[in-house]
């Protein structure tokens, strides 16, 4: 499935998305682990507390289920306003 990245995370990973080979349905914790394996040198900024996760454009706070067709994005804590 396609995972989107924004801001500092996009720059550190050097891509704005990745196609992740993961069986669905899955959940945000599993996707986070898979991303850390895909980008082992950047595992620190993908860690829980360092990268936020949105599923279908809504911020998640706990482990959240992800199914086929969902839009999943990882990004740093927000700094607008």
């Amino acid at each position: 499935m396609k995972i989107l990245f924004f801001a500092a995370l996009r720059e550190r990973l050097n891509c704005d998305h990745v196609q992740l080979d993961i069986p669905l349905p899955s959940d945000t914790n599993s996707i986070r682990s898979a991303l850390q394996q895909t980008f082992p040198e950047q595992a620190d900024i993908l860690a829980d507390g360092k990268a936020l996760v949105a599923v279908n454009q809504t911020l998640t706070h706990d482990n959240t289920g992800v199914k086929e067709g969902d839009e999943v994005a990882f990004f740093p804590p927000v700094t607008g306003g």
Partner: peptide, 19 residues
């Protein structure tokens, strides 16, 4: 807005750019 809306600032400083 400061904690939930997905905006990110990248500043230009005398030492270069930084998030």
């Amino acid at each position: 807005l400061k904690t939930r809306a997905p905006f990110w600032k990248k500043e230009v400083t005398e030492k270069g750019e930084r998030w």
